[in-house]
Design a protein around this nucleic acid. Structure first.
Lengths: 216, 216
DNA sequence: ACTAAATTAAAACACCTGTTTGAAATGTAC
DNA sequence: GTACATTTCAAACAGGTGTTTTAATTTAGT
């Protein structure tokens, strides 16, 4: 049999619509109509739209974050000096393995992540920090070890600059890939974008302190 | 007398609410109530909410963009080799001068710009390209001249990565400054953030091509 | 001061939102 | 097969949205 449950039908439709239209601009009626289930099913199975959004993300995060956490711990315990590119590259494999969770899991998840941060749904930030703050701390520690010359506050800013790049790129990933295909005849998969991102981010994060940045 | 007109009262209230709550999540009723004008005044004076959003941005863009255009042209005509930091630094003065348009003009405008790109209001992208595409082309040309070793497609991607940083940082600027103040005891004005951004962006954009980025 | 245009005002409009209700249908255990 | 719990369904609910309408008011020109 292996029939998909109502909950899964809702999750599948929701993540697709959320990724392409955003959380706020996707209505429950769109979701239930695409999933071919009754409107009331969302509130019955998930309680509210808010909890549905969290469930959609949780399906990926519960796979991704433990894997990342493990990799971070491993890198932290290995005594060798980790360079920044190595630290950032930790994300690649766990991210790409999300394609096993869903057909286009990686792209979908990253797009959702972008939406999650750009649509400033306050509850999502809380949800993430509450569940995965520890893992995040390990990552920050690794970056600090890789950039011993940078003060913590500078790393704070640069990591948020980088978060902006990732989030924005992923949120507008589809549009960017279409432009790249049209203007430069190049077809980049999500994997290609990730491999373009890492050296860019590493160079920005590790850039030497300048007079002008220190003055302010 | 010098009394503020209804239109200005609406623009002032709208930009404040748009900047802090986003375009979609700000209702006309919130705006008109803060501006202390009648609800119907928005549609009477601006036609629609869409056009109000454009008008709010236009108030800043019509000051900023001609100034940027002029600076770009000047840099293009000067025959000397411009380095990337110099090109990016062109933005600083015109941006900070937006404080003359409104009290907190610079911060407000950048926050609005962030909102404009993260709330994917399609009409805003069109509006911007339609009015200021020429100016943008000059900027891209300057970057290409500063990075002669990078193929155009790579520059395309890196400029969009950078756009992500700027837009995201500006959209969440308020939250970031609060965290920085709490965690690192440092009070950064918008000017400080800009001076932190430029070396970060320059390093990312100018980073050398790597094997992994070329392979994909 | 009179007229005509521009502006303000209150109310209604049509539509969409997330959520709840109560009955019908389905599944499950004994 | 009967009782019970789970799930589905259509309908309604309460509230919010941008926009329009129609009348009242203010402003400006002669």
């Amino acid at each position: 049999m292996n029939k998909t449950t109502t909950q899964d039908k809702i999750l599948d439709a929701a993540e697709q619509l959320f990724a392409s239209t955003g959380f706020a601009d996707t209505s429950l009626r769109q979701i239930t109509s695409m999933a071919q289930v009754n409107l009331a099913a969302v509130n019955y199975h998930f309680g509210s739209k808010k909890e549905l959004i969290q469930s959609v993300l949780q399906r990926y995060l519960s796979v991704l974050m433990p894997r990342l956490d493990q990799e971070f711990s491993q890198l932290l315990s290995s005594q060798k000096q980790n360079d920044l590119t190595a630290v950032l590259s930790v994300f690649i494999k766990p991210l790409l393995e999300l394609n096993k969770v869903q057909h286009h899991g990686t792209r979908m998840f990253l797009q959702l992540l972008g939406r999650g941060y750009t649509d400033v749904q306050g509850h999502l930030r809380w949800f993430f920090n509450h569940h995965y703050g520890r893992t995040l701390d390990k990552f920050v520690l690794l970056v600090q070890q890789a950039c011993p010359d940078l003060p913590a506050s500078e790393i704070f800013w640069r990591l948020h600059f980088s978060l902006g790049t990732v989030v924005f790129t992923m949120a507008s990933n589809q549009a960017l890939q279409e432009i790249a295909a049209a203007d430069f005849n190049e077809n980049v998969e999500i994997e290609g974008v990730i491999h373009r991102l890492i050296p860019y981010l590493a160079a920005g994060i590790a850039s030497p302190l300048t007079l002008s940045s220190q003055a302010h």
